[in-house]
Amino acid sequence: MRRFVLLYFFALTLPVFLVISVWQSRNYASLQRDVRRLEVVQEEWIESNKRLIAGITLFSSAERIEHIAVEQLGLTKKQPEEILQIRIENGRGRIDG
């Protein structure tokens, strides 16, 4: 009797284990596809960030800013003797220059 119970037990649990194994394999394959897709998205974001950083570097260069100030805005550099500095100390103004 005990032998038959064990035989029935194994006969019934084997399909359960097979179903669980198949389900786990499908779940793993789905997660692998998600990981690959996210890696592609991550690479796109990294490349986009590299381009943005290059643009920031280009647009914030001192030479470019000076060129825009002189050529487009008509500004000129002042000589040190033309600059008037005002410092505020203890609530009173003081002019240096």
Rank of each mutant, 00 (worst) to 15 (best):
A62N: 14
F59G: 08
T57A: 07
I95Y: 04
N49W: 09
V41P: 00
L6G: 07
F9G: 15
G91C: 02
E43N: 03
V40A: 13
D96K: 05
I83C: 12
F10A: 05
F59A: 10
R26S: 00
N27A: 02
R64T: 08
Q24R: 06
Q85E: 09
V70M: 09
K77M: 14
R87P: 00
F10W: 10
L58D: 01
I65D: 05
T57R: 15
Q42K: 11
N90S: 13
G91E: 07
V16C: 07
G55H: 08
E63I: 00
W23S: 03
N90L: 04
I95M: 04
Q32Y: 00
E81A: 10
R92G: 00
A54R: 15
V16P: 06
A62R: 14
K50R: 15
I86K: 04
R36Q: 11
D96Q: 11
Q42D: 12
I56Y: 13
E39V: 03
V22M: 01
E44Y: 04
Y28S: 06
L73D: 02
Y28H: 04
R87L: 04
A11S: 10
S61C: 12
E63F: 06
D34N: 08
R64N: 01
V19Y: 01
G91F: 01
T76C: 01
D34Y: 05
F9A: 11
F4G: 13
A69F: 06
T76Q: 12
L75P: 03
E63W: 03
P80E: 13
S30E: 06
E89H: 14
R36K: 12
L52E: 05
E39R: 02
V70R: 13
S30D: 10
F59D: 01
P15R: 00
L18S: 00
K78C: 05
H67A: 11
Q79C: 00
W45A: 08
L75W: 15
V19P: 03
S30A: 08
R33H: 02
P15V: 02
V16F: 06
L18Y: 06
E44L: 01
W45K: 09
R2T: 15
T57C: 06
R36S: 12
T76E: 00
L84E: 09
G93P: 12
V40S: 02
F17E: 09
F4I: 12
V16H: 05
P15L: 06
A69D: 05
L7W: 10
H67E: 01
A62C: 01
H67N: 02
I68P: 00
E66A: 15
R87V: 13
G97Q: 09
N90K: 15
R26K: 08
Q32A: 07
Q32S: 06
K77G: 11
R26Y: 02
L84V: 15
V35K: 03
Q42V: 06
I46P: 06
N49M: 04
I83E: 02
E66Q: 11
S48V: 07
L12W: 13
L84G: 05
V41G: 10
E43D: 12
F59T: 09
I65C: 05
K78H: 10
F59C: 10
I68L: 11
V35L: 14
R87N: 09
R51P: 00
S60R: 07
S21K: 04
T57G: 11
Q72S: 13
I53N: 14
I53V: 13
E89F: 04
V5G: 13
A62K: 14
R33P: 03
A54T: 08
Q79G: 10
I65N: 08
E71L: 13
L14R: 03
